[in-house]
Each structure stands twice: as C-alpha cells, then as structure tokens.
Design a protein around this nucleic acid. Structure first.
Lengths: 277, 277
DNA sequence: CAAATAGTGTCTCTAAGACAATATCAC
DNA sequence: GTGATATTGTCTTAGAGACACTATTTG
C-alpha cells in the first residue's frame, strides 16, 4: 500500500499534452468628451483598451490585452498584471466573463483564454498619462442589435474603425453567447469576447456595486447617473435615479462650483451596506 | 519580412511551462423524499453528485466529478463528458461558476480547475438507474450562514457526513468568493467550489430560466414551486408563485390524479418568450 | 435676465406580498 | 364528511416611472 507522500514523489503530470492558458481583459473606462458649451455638462464615452499586435499571428491587428498564465500566479493575478503592463494602472475591479476554449481559436495551437472585464477610472489613467505613440489605445465602443439576433460592435480610435458583426446564441440558464459573423479585423475570437464582456458589464451596471469604480472617490450624482446611462444606453429621470441610488451614497459638505449653473454636491460611496441584522 | 504562414510553420508553443486544465462539475438534482402520508405531497431534497476518489491524492475522499481537458474539445464539452461518464446522463444545462487557479490547490502540481454548475433532472437519473455500489453517489446538501460571514456546508449520503466551514470574501462587482476554514474531508479546494456553485445556483433560481431543467417536460406548478423553494430555501405563497410564473408556462389538458386531493394540471415550459417587438 | 443643471415633492402604475375563499379529489 | 392540495380573486404595499416645480449659479 502506497502512502500519499510516496505517491506524489513518483507522480508525473507530463503524460498528457497540456494547453497554454491566457488571460484576456476587456478593460473599460468612461471618459468625458469636450463640452459643447461653457455651461453644459460634458457627454461621456465608453472606452475599451485595445493593443496593436506587433508580431504574428494577426500582425498589426488590434486585440484585447492579455498574456500567458505564468507559474505561481492565479489567473486573476495574470489578468491584473497584463493590464498594469499596458496602462501602468491597477484596475479597480475584475470580473470573469467566460472561458474561450474552441480548439482552433488560435492559429498558434492549443490556447485557451480566460476572459475578464475590468473597470479603470478615468482619473487614474489621467494621472499616469497616456503615450499617444503606444501600441495600446482606448477605443470608443458601440454595441447594438441590428435586428434578428444579430449584433454590431463598433470600435473607433482616431481614424481606425473596426466593425464586427455577431450572432446571438442562447445557452442554458438563460445566458447568451456570441458567434462571430465578421470579426471586423479584430484578432482571434476577440470580437466575441468583447461582445460577451459588454453584455456582462451592462448586466452588472444595473446594480450599484459596479458603476462607482469608473469614478474618483468623490463624485456628483449626475456624474454617476451619466456613467450608468453611458454603459446601459438607457436614460432615467434624475429624480428617480437619485431615489434609487440614495441608499448607496453618502453626502459630503463639498460642492463642484464654477460650471455656469447650480453647484452639485459631492458624494462618496457608502461603505457599510444596510440589511444585515 | 515573414508572412503569417511562414511564422506559424516555425512557431513552437513549448517554450513556456503550461498548466494542466480540468473541468469540475457540481451536478445538482432535486429528488422527492418518501411521503409522510398517503395524500400529502412529498418533500424535496437538493442533491449533489460526489465521487469517491480511488487513488492518491486525497484517496478515499469525496470530490466533485471532473477530469482533464483533452485536446480537440472545449472545456464545456469536457465538463459534459465527465458527467456523462459518471451518471450516464447528459445534463440539461451547464453554467460556468469560476476558475480556480491557486498555484498550490492541487498537490500533484500546477492544475487549474474550471468549475461548472449542471442541472440533471430526477427523471433522467431514474431512467438509467443508479448503481448503489458505484463510486459516484448523490449527497443531500445544506448550506447556511452560521453568522459573522461564516458558512457551513453539509453533505450527507447514508452514513457519510461531510461538514465544511467556509469564510465569505467580498470581491469586486459585489460578488462573493469563499475561503476554506475546514474542508470537512472534501478533496482539494472542492468545498469552496461547491459553495461558489451553490451561491450561483441560488442566484439563478430566482429567474425562471433555470428551474425547469430539474423537472420532466410536463410538470405541475406546485412541483415547480417546490423546486424553487428547495434551492433558495425560502417559501412563497402559491397564489403569488402562480402569478409570477404564469408567463413562462403553458397549460396542457392533462392532470395528475390519484393523489388523495384535487388533481393538479400539468404544464409545459413556454418556448416563445414574450417581449420581442 | 437667460441658460443651464441641481434638487425636491408627489401622483400614478405595476408587480409582489398577504389573505380569504372556493374547487376537487381519495379515503 | 375529513384532510389534503389546487386554483382564483382581491386588498395592500413598496418601488419604479412621469412630471411639475423650486433653487442656484455664470455670463
């Protein structure tokens, strides 16, 4: 009879072929656009970080930032590390989106991707600055259904415009996945990963545990509302938004002045959640 | 300048060490218990499939069914294959729960686990029969918070009783993970995987895309309600449950008779979902 | 004052919860 | 009839949506 120690001493994992494992991250940011008018509030845009591939395969195509899982780290640590390498910013949050393991999804061989959504605050990006000549750039995102279970994903950065088309696929538990009809020039199956990530982000933006991460510590309620509206592509009346968010925020005594209209009170996120008996 | 084809010809993935990848599945079933009384409806129990490990490590411990990802299959196919091998039943549904990749989670080496929840209907298990001497058995599940962010997971099958203790850990996006305080004799980190799986299942059971998979094609509304109550551990008044589920089901003309009380109409799941303009 | 946003009060409507009442069967 | 579940109807209540109104600032 063999003991567990003896067994492990003689154990070899290498009999089977193993896949390479990567983490790919859809890092989102919300950025205010230029004001149309001195007293008007700025519009927001949802931005997604893409990286221009320097080598084969898909050379010169844009792709999600990501990289191979290294020994000694978890897949979440890998995802955070990759984002840090590209942006110099540590994301506020990370959420798994799915595992993409179609055997032929990568022409280099057997590589499975763990996809994540990550939220980065505009403030933190502005602090470290952004290299305009870098291979990593923030693309503005639009993602809408174009009828008949078909979706159109558009990504734009300066004069680069990527436009992918995806088909909706129902899976169990009422969830949906996406099949690529036209990759729009995105590398690998990243168009499908982005679609999945956006769907997950929109679902999460409904509840108030997610949207704070786009903003700095202190924010106005209107700014918070615009974040939610930008992500979900729906609008709420300000009065109703304020009522809904009221239990998640705390007043400060400070205001934002000098905007050409009534100053807005700054709020912070309420740390202690109600409902615990 | 190298073309992509030339590049791929000379490309080798084997420079980096790669992890082994497994799929582990928390397969749930709901089974009616013996009636207390000839005219009373049976109580339900939530059951989880566990497998007794035949070899090291964790020899003779109980573990989730699972196995290594094989070349040419997706991780979902791997999960379904493993369940099929243990139960002879193809699950009705499969939902990702998370990726467990702590470097030291498996004493055999670098092995990361993709966890899934799967629902198996009691009917399908009854049809193929169940080998009582098999190494795979259905354990009844209870999972409750024992105050102070601590959870107790109890699994029972005949005279086997596994009792794990877990601590809640908040992650971003308002999600929770679990850290094992006491594995209760379960193999690897499977206590944490089961806790995560149960949390995901309970969350999903709220909406009516999930619970039908526990039942046969035709079912009574009371049976459907009991399924939801068994999973979520809360009760609803029958009148209100019927109203809530009414748009998801369709009447048949058949009834269940001979139960010592008023016959219950059989329903089927409504296939065409409302709300599409 | 004009233009714009900030913020409050309140009516309505809908969906969930509570509860009462009736229907139907096996024994 | 008795004991049990099946099924329907309706009152109440909490929360989201709509809308009207007031408050406050800069140019």
């Amino acid at each position: 009879m063999q003991s567990e120690k003896e067994f492990l001493k003689g154990y070899k994992l290498s009999d089977y072929e193993r896949p390479s494992v990567t983490a790919d991250v859809a890092a989102f940011m919300i950025s205010p656009q230029d004001k149309e008018n001195y007293r008007r509030n700025p519009e927001n845009k949802l931005l997604l970080l893409l990286v221009k591939r320097g080598g084969h395969p898909f050379k010169d195509c844009w792709a999600l930032p990501g990289g191979f899982l290294q020994k000694g780290e978890t897949i979440e640590q890998c995802a955070l590390r990759e984002i840090k390498e590209e942006t110099n910013v540590l994301p506020a949050s990370l959420m798994p989106v799915g595992v993409f393991s179609e055997p032929d999804r990568d022409p280099r061989g057997w590589i499975i991707s763990n996809a994540y959504v990550s939220i980065i605050s505009e403030e933190s990006v502005r602090q470290v600055g952004m290299d305009d000549a870098s291979d990593a750039q923030w693309f503005s995102v639009s993602f809408d259904r174009s009828g008949n279970g078909s979706y159109r994903l558009s990504l734009e950065y300066e004069d680069v415009r990527l436009c992918a088309v995806l088909a909706e696929e129902k899976t169990s538990f009422g969830k949906t996945a996406f099949r690529i009809s036209d990759s729009g020039g995105l590398a690998f199956d990243h168009a499908a990963i982005i679609a999945q990530a956006l769907t997950a982000l929109r679902n999460e933006a409904k509840n108030f545990d997610t949207i704070f991460d786009f903003l700095p510590e202190r924010f106005t309620l209107t700014a918070l509302q615009k974040v939610q509206e930008t992500i979900m592509n729906v609008s709420v009346l300000p009065a109703n938004f304020r009522r809904m968010v009221s239990s998640y925020v705390e007043e400060t005594d400070d205001y934002v002045r000098g905007e050409g209209h009534r100053p807005a009170r700054l709020y912070t996120r309420k740390t202690i959640k109600e409902g615990s008996t």
